[in-house]
């Protein structure tokens, strides 16, 4: 299998929709995930896990499609050899040693037995469980179990790994260790990652790109640098002529967005404040509020999750 090129997304969703009975988990989502570390950010129940399970082929889409390297994982299960998955919930057997479990999982992913044992040992070393690998998993701490979960997702050397809330249930120290491991997996191991989290800090410090998801829909996406660069976000509330204000702003090269009835703009230079003043004057709109907001990810998240 040749390495994927940048032009072909690793994961792709077209009008992806998933219903559970009456509940709509994901609605008409388009997504393109490329190389690097992608963060899937959103509150609990936003549809993050559902999206991952659709890409893994654990679920069948109600409508639309989810593809991995151009293949539909629900129909072509062989593509799953190239995917790794670390679920949010517990997923480890009690009475197996980490070494035995990883070797088994590598084999179930298609790696022959003799290579599987080496891969298992290497992987446990990479996640820092070298010493404990012959102990039963039952005896591990939460942090150690979390690392075994990560290791089993990587043991068959996947092209892409999906990590569902990898920091859930960890204390601050354990969280930082896990995120460091994730960064290393992405940067040093060269494995592409999709990581979901409801915590801003997780994605901010780990990811290259961010997709903000809520209520089963994508509400924002872009490179982390776009979100965190020295920008200021302003909220503009006007009593009337909102459409005209937007047109005047766009004419001055300022991108706008509507959120909660406010016009939201992102400014890169202070002079752009003058442009706002001019635009408001031009259309004679009555200004009610012009409020700044620091352009941090946590801010976007608060906004998007209301």
């Amino acid at each position: 299998m040749s390495g994927p090129t940048v032009s072909q997304p690793l994961l792709e969703a077209h009008s992806l929709t998933k219903h559970y009975g009456q509940t709509i988990a994901l609605h008409d989502v388009d997504m393109h995930v490329r190389e690097g570390i992608t963060g899937l950010l959103g509150p609990n129940g936003a549809g993050k896990s559902t999206a991952m399970k659709l890409f893994l082929g654990l679920l069948q889409p109600t409508a639309g499609s989810a593809t991995v390297l151009g293949e539909k994982p629900y129909e072509n299960i062989a593509i799953r050899m190239r995917l790794g998955y670390m679920p949010e919930h517990d997923c480890l057997p009690d009475f197996m040693t980490a070494s035995e479990f990883l070797s088994h999982m590598a084999q179930v992913s298609g790696i022959p037995a003799k290579h599987a044992r080496t891969r298992a040992a290497d992987m446990l070393r990479h996640v820092g469980l070298d010493e404990e690998r012959y102990r039963h998993i039952k005896e591990y701490s939460t942090g150690m179990k979390q690392r075994v979960k990560l290791a089993q997702a990587l043991v068959h050397d996947p092209v892409m790994v999906l990590l569902d809330e990898p920091t859930a249930g960890l204390d601050p120290g354990g969280r930082e260790e896990m995120l460091q491991l994730v960064r290393r997996t992405g940067k040093d191991f060269g494995i592409n990652i999709m990581l979901s989290s409801h915590l801003m800090g997780d994605v901010e410090t780990t990811c290259d790109r961010i997709i903000v998801i809520e209520g089963g829909a994508i509400i924002e996406e872009g490179a982390v640098s776009e979100f965190t660069q020295e920008t200021e976000t302003f909220y503009i509330d006007v009593d009337d002529r909102r459409e005209e204000v937007i047109a005047a702003l766009e004419a001055r090269g300022i991108k706008t967005r509507i959120s909660g009835g406010s016009v939201v703009v992102r400014l890169h230079r202070d002079e752009q404040l003058d442009d706002i003043r001019d635009a408001l004057a031009e259309v004679q709109a009555r200004l009610r509020r012009l409020a700044p907001s620091r352009g941090e990810l946590s801010d976007i998240f608060r906004r998007s999750t209301g």
Partner: peptide, 13 residues
């Protein structure tokens, strides 16, 4: 233990 999930995301039905 939730291991079933890990099997079902691998190349088997």
């Amino acid at each position: 233990n939730g291991v079933t999930t890990l099997y079902l995301v691998r190349p088997l039905t």
